[in-house]
């Protein structure tokens, strides 16, 4: 039982990483209609930046925050390249984000080399219900919870958040009321960069990060985001956590080499079950 709880916390923490990457995908997709393949790169850039900032002697916490901002800038830059030209089709922009991701490989290798780097996180274990769990896992879970609450408040309560939802809901009408939809798309990409950055600095202490770690991050993040139809952040959280738990449980009780694949299969099965159950009546009416 103790062991099961340890695996559970481990799975939730891993899943939080997927959920954060997934919510970045959702933020960009909702508002621009673009599937952003550079999303994993934001996490990698932030994680690698954090290792550099720490190496420079910058305090933990500050270093991670700065790294998250670097992620935000990476997001903004990707947005400018991908959707800065008015009238760019989402599919074209998707290809551009893919290209940006590969270009970023070159820059990352140039700056940080091609060897994995790890970031020290919280050491030691804390007792949770009598179960010893790594404190970094608890940090990941707590920060993710705070980030998702803030994300929800931002979209539900702030004027800018509502305007972003308006752009997502009806871009033509957004232009009718005078919203600069392109600028809102940049904000969405920057937000995606920040969310990816948070994922990066949280995950880096759990596993070494190299320039090509974005692939595994985006596969998990994408699965999480798809769980909510790419448009619902909270469903991305649920999908991510489910994915993380499944993966860890398969590794722990089954065959370690089937962890990721098994988790993805499980998620797909749930989605098929969901879509079969849900009536398709409720398409957006406006």
């Amino acid at each position: 039982m103790t062991q099961f709880l340890m695996f559970l916390v481990n799975g939730i923490a891993i899943g939080c990483g997927f959920a954060l990457v997934g919510s970045g995908l959702v933020a960009v997709y909702r508002i621009t209609g673009v599937v952003n393949f550079a999303q994993g790169m934001f996490a990698v850039v932030a994680a690698l930046s954090a290792t550099s900032f720490v190496a420079l002697g910058i305090w933990h916490g500050v270093a991670e925050l700065m790294a998250v901002l670097v992620g935000g800038f990476a997001g903004l830059a990707t947005g400018v390249v991908a959707v800065g030209r008015r009238g760019t089709q989402p599919l074209t922009a998707l290809l551009v984000t893919l290209a940006v991701g590969f270009l970023a490989y070159a820059i990352e290798v140039l700056v940080w080399g091609d060897q994995p780097r790890s970031l020290p996180g919280l050491d030691g274990r804390a007792a949770l219900l009598g179960v010893p769990v790594q404190r970094q896992y608890l940090l990941v879970i707590a920060v993710t919870a705070v980030v998702f609450v803030l994300l929800w408040l931002f979209f539900a309560r702030t004027y800018l958040g509502k305007a972003l939802t308006a752009c997502a809901s009806n871009p033509y009408a957004a232009r009718v009321v005078g919203i600069d939809v392109t600028r809102m798309a940049f904000i969405a990409f920057a937000l995606g960069g920040v969310l990816g950055g948070v994922a990066g600095v949280l995950v880096a202490p759990l596993r070494p990060i190299s320039f090509d770690s974005d692939v595994s991050l985006i596969v998990g993040g994408f699965a999480a985001a798809i769980f909510g139809g790419l448009t619902r952040p909270m469903m991305a959280l649920a999908g991510g956590v489910l994915l993380g738990i499944t993966e860890v449980m398969i590794r722990a009780y089954g065959d370690a080499s089937y962890g990721t694949v098994g988790a993805l299969v499980f998620l797909i099965a749930i989605m098929i079950w969901q879509s079969a159950r849900r009536p398709t009546l409720h398409k957006e009416a406006v």
């Binding site: 004027y159 509502k162 305007a163 939802t165 308006a166 997502a168 809901s169 009806n170 033509y172 009408a173 957004a174 009718v176 009321v177 919203i179 957006e284 009416a285 406006v286």
Partner: peptide, 16 residues
């Protein structure tokens, strides 16, 4: 009409 379907009526007004 072209409303923001996901938003409430009041939020539609505010975005106006």
């Amino acid at each position: 009409r072209q409303l923001f379907g996901e938003l409430s009526v009041e939020d539609n007004l505010l975005i106006g």
